[in-house]
């Protein structure tokens, strides 16, 4: 997935001189995860910009650039470091279109690695995507495959509005797959059906998709055919695919790595009960991280949903 993202960024920089990259260590070093590796050499330090260590400044400067008509792609090193930039996102980036009634816009992308799985220090394992989904005026993208990562990133850069682009850290090197050259854009608001099934629906996004697929395989061994939906974008949300699947199977398990209370799964559950209640054969269930600080490396497994927990939830829903 890491290589797919690098290829997409290179393609975007090559295709449009208005595209710039800015962030901490994105230039000489190629980013802490090497996603921008080699890009400064190819495009120069004016287009792949190493900034001071200042997340609010990165977001705010990208905002000004975007208002002036450029297409900045900012990188924040970890989601746990993005909170200083949140004021710029919630107070300005997300609002300028409303505030100016379309006169000024902020077509920028903020790429942020998120999620657990690499056993780094505190603040390096957050999944707080719900905060952004709760913020009016920003789109929220969470890819799970290399082709989607590249294709959704190209769509994000071309989008006329600000996009928070969350990259699953543990999928960077672990998830492999073919990517077209150049990558093909992937539309926002279209969930992917990763596995067809008739007995229950498992809904996931980002880093939880591979684990959810594993859980579906486990369930299949027991004769339970799960449909797996990969939302790909939380904003905009593909209601049609979600509700269609819920209506067909009548059993839904929602999977998210983020904290449980007010997580994105809660929004999905509310929507399903509002619009598909009479098709349901069992209560809609969530498998989530907990309302705890994400535990450090040695206890992290207590927090992150595992294929076993997802499969167990699937079996419970079948028995309900």
């Amino acid at each position: 997935m890491a290589q797919a993202l690098t290829a997409a960024l290179g393609h975007a920089l090559r295709s449009d001189r208005d595209v710039l990259i800015l962030g901490e260590d994105v230039g000489t070093t190629g980013g802490v995860f090497r996603i921008t590796d080699g890009l400064q050499t190819e495009f120069g330090p004016d287009r792949v910009i190493d900034t001071p260590v200042a997340e609010s400044g990165i977001a705010g400067a990208a905002f000004g650039m975007a208002v002036a008509g450029l297409r900045p792609v900012a990188e924040i090193q970890f989601l746990g470091f993005a909170y200083p930039a949140y004021d710029q996102i919630v107070s300005h980036i997300s609002r300028i279109r409303t505030r100016s009634q379309h006169r000024f816009t902020a077509p920028l992308v903020i790429r942020i690695p998120y999620g657990a799985g690499i056993g780094a220090a505190e603040h390096h394992s957050e999944s707080t995507e719900a905060i952004f989904a709760h913020t009016p005026g920003v789109k929220v993208v969470v890819p799970s495959t290399p082709a989607d990562a590249a294709g959704l990133l190209l769509t994000a850069i071309a989008d006329p509005d600000p996009v928070i682009f969350l990259e699953p850290i543990r999928s960077y090197r672990r998830v492999r797959g073919e990517v077209a050259d150049p990558p093909r854009p992937v539309a926002f608001g279209e969930a992917a059906v990763r596995r067809s099934g008739t007995d229950l629906t498992l809904v996931a996004y980002g880093a939880m998709v591979p684990d959810t697929m594993d859980a579906a395989d486990d369930l299949a061994v027991a004769g339970i055919e799960a449909e797996v939906l990969d939302l790909r974008t939380l904003v905009p949300l593909d209601y049609d695919t979600l509700l269609d699947s819920a209506n067909r199977t009548g059993r839904v398990v929602l999977v998210q790595e983020g904290h449980r209370t007010c997580g994105f799964a809660a929004e999905l559950a509310a929507t399903i009960q509002e619009e598909a209640l009479y098709s349901l054969l069992a209560p809609v269930t969530r498998v989530t991280g907990w309302d705890t600080v994400v535990p450090l490396r040695r206890a992290e497994h207590h927090y992150v949903p595992s294929p076993e927990r997802i499969a167990a939830a699937g079996r419970a829903v079948m028995e309900a």
Binding site: S56, G57, G60, A61, A62, F63, G64, M65, A66, V67, A68, G69, L70, P72, D87, Q88, S91, H92, I96, R99, S100, Q101, H102, R103, F104
Partner: peptide, 29 residues
Amino acid sequence: GAAPPDVNVLPPSITVGAHMIHAVGLAWA
């Protein structure tokens, strides 16, 4: 907040202090 098309004036900042970096980004562009 909708300045005329040829007027490069952003709507007034209501929060205190967050807008100077916007000018930096504009000038940088």
